[in-house]
Amino acid sequence: MIRSLIDLLRNLQSEEDCRLFLENIRWHGVPVCPHCGSKSEEHYKLTNGGVFRGLYKCKDCRERFTVTVGTMFEGSHIPLQKWFIAIYVFLAHKKGISSTQLHKDIAVTQKTAWFMLSRIRYNIRYNADIDFGDITQVDETYIGGKNKNRNAGKRLKNTRGRSLKLKAPVMGLLSDGKVYVEPIPSASKWVLHHVINSLVPKGTTVVTDGWYGYKGLSENYVHKVVDHHRGEYVKGGYHTNSIEGFWSQLKRGIIGVYHLVTRKHLELYCDEFAYRYNTRNLTDGERFSQFLSIAKKRLKYRMLIL
C-alpha cells in the first residue's frame, strides 16, 4: 500500500516496479486477458531479447495483452511512473493541480499535462454513482467571473443577477455525506425538478433554500425550506450548510488553481471535486489505489478537443 508521495517515489522507481504494482491492483497476482476474460497463471509470457516486460499471450484466445490494455493507460507513451505521480498529486491535493504546475513537476509539456489531467477526470466522471438516502440537501450555484473584472472592451451588457452570459449554473445534491454535481442549462423550476425527480427517491426529505425553482417539490417529497433571505440557516434541524460548504471548495479550487474553466469542460471539473469530497475519509494512498482499480476509460485527445 502506498501511503505518501515519498513512499510512491521510493517504491515505484522503475517502469517494471510500476507495472508490477498495477498488475497487483488489477489482477491480484493472476493475469486476466482483457479480450476474452480468461484468468490464468498459464498465459504465455513473451520476451524481447530474452527479457520479459509484461507482454502476455492468452492461452485461450491467443491475443496479446499487457496490464494497461483496457485501462486509461492503454496506448500512452508516457511512463507509468509519471502517470502515477500525476494521479497521486491530483487526488491528494484538495484543490487539484494545474497543468502548468504538473508539466514542471514531471517534465512533460503543458499540453501533455493538460491531457493527462483530463484523462484522469474522464475516469472519475464514469464512477460517480450515488445512492440518495432519507435526507438530501439540494442547492444551485453559478461558476464564472464577474463582468466588472473583464477588459473594458469585453464587458457584456444586460448581465444583472444570474446572467447566463457570464456564468454557468451548477446543481448539487448531497446525501449521507456524498455529493452529486451536474452543470445545468438554467436554474428554472423545470430543470431543477427534472434532476431531483430522476435521482432522489420519492417520499424522502429534500432540503432546499427559498429559490422559487424548488416550489412544488412537496408533491413528491417532504420538502423542507430554509429561507436565507429571512436569516434562516438551520430550521428544525434541517440545513443546506453541507452542500454550500462543498461549493466553497469547488469555487476556491477553480479560482485559486485553475483560474478559468470553460462550459465545455465544466462537468469534468465538477466531477473531480465531487470525487475528492466523496473519498475524503480515505487516506491519499487508499484513494490512489482505488482510482487505479476503476480507471478503465480511455479518453483520446481528438475526443477532448472536439
Rank of each mutant, 00 (worst) to 15 (best):
E244A: 02
E244H: 12
G245M: 04
Q249C: 11
L250C: 07
K251F: 10
K251W: 09
R252Q: 15
R252K: 12
G253F: 01
G253Y: 04
G253Q: 01
G253H: 07
I254F: 03
I254D: 00
I254C: 04
I255F: 11
G256F: 04
G256I: 07
Y258E: 10
V261T: 07
V261S: 01
V261H: 08
V261Y: 09
T262P: 08
R263A: 13
R263E: 15
R263G: 12
R263Y: 14
K264R: 15
K264P: 06
H265L: 11
L266K: 03
L266Y: 02
L268D: 13
Y269G: 06
Y269T: 10
C270A: 10
C270Y: 03
C270F: 05
C270I: 09
D271Y: 12
F273Y: 15
Y275D: 09
Y275L: 11
Y275W: 14
Y275N: 05
Y277N: 09
N278Q: 05
R280T: 04
N281T: 07
N281F: 11
L282C: 14
T283C: 02
D284N: 04
D284Y: 02
D284C: 02
D284W: 01
G285I: 00
G285W: 00
E286D: 10
R287N: 02
F288K: 00
F288M: 01
F288L: 05
F288I: 01
F288T: 00
S289L: 08
Q290L: 13
F291K: 03
L292S: 01
L292A: 02
L292D: 00
S293F: 08
S293Y: 06
I294P: 06
A295V: 06
A295W: 00
A295T: 03
A295P: 02
K297L: 09
K297C: 10
R298C: 08
K300V: 13
K300Y: 14
R302C: 14
L304S: 07
